[in-house]
Design a protein around this nucleic acid. Structure first.
Lengths: 128, 128
DNA sequence: CAGATTCGCTACACTATGCGTAGCAATACA
DNA sequence: TGTATTGCTACGCATAGTGTAGCGAATCTG
């Protein structure tokens, strides 16, 4: 089974001609892809450390995402484990603002008292 | 069966306590979510127009994504069809830079003859 | 009014993707 | 030698996404 990795210029989800943005969205729009990049923001992590950092990710999927992300040039390996490549760090820089945005977004839920039944007490959201 | 929509403060993929950024990633990390937002960037689209714009999306999933995105406050409806809410437009503004980035990223594939996808066999492994 | 077209959306069977657990080979240290 | 940790695979099950067909409502057309 050849691994299916979204590649610009090749048919991807959202574009039969492989428009770069759609290839990127196809890649990032898979479970845990964004989370993995986020966790690698400031440090290298081993496979098991990543497993722990991404609560609940199965090793099967983690391995798949890591292969996709390395093949796409966002992630590399060294003796410390997995870490972002320069290109990956560049991508993360573009994703960073989403962190602040998400906190503003979250407030719209607490303000309107949206169904929050049975939520466990949580510290004020710490940045990654 | 209640639809499962990632909500800050509730357990989501990547955070049992529902950290906002993880809830957002859970939401955007589902197929077509990013693509739908992207397509609505500059105009309102009807359901069928969206179906056409997102080549190959099934109506089942499109409907699901639209429900999630409206419930999350990113998308609204008017007589013209679906369009981004102010909050959604704000989110899109943060995603826009990815468009340019993806173009640069795509060049790394054409430069290397599009065969970057085969990842190098082995890097030095992190010793336990 | 009858017919045709388009609309948003649902039903349903099939396939792909992800999950959870177990566990293996390799390395490191005792 | 034994124990522990590493990266990672196997496998069975559950969920998410695909593809096609088609419904009821609304809007044109004659």
């Amino acid at each position: 089974m050849p691994i299916d990795i979204p590649t610009p210029g090749q048919p991807v989800r959202g574009s039969s001609t492989g428009k770069p943005i759609m290839a990127l969205f196809d890649l990032l729009g898979r479970s845990w892809a964004l989370g993995v990049i986020w966790q690698l923001s400031d440090r290298a992590l081993t496979f098991r450390q990543l497993q722990t950092a991404c609560e609940g990710v199965s090793p099967t999927v983690l391995n798949k995402r890591l292969k996709e992300l390395t093949a796409s040039g966002f992630v590399v390996r060294n003796d410390q484990g997995y870490l972002l490549s320069p290109s990956g760090a560049q991508l993360l820089a573009l994703l960073r603002p989403l962190g602040h945005y998400s906190e503003d977004w979250a407030e719209t839920f607490t303000q309107t008292g949206e169904s929050l039944a049975g939520h466990s007490p949580d510290a004020p959201r710490p940045g990654p």
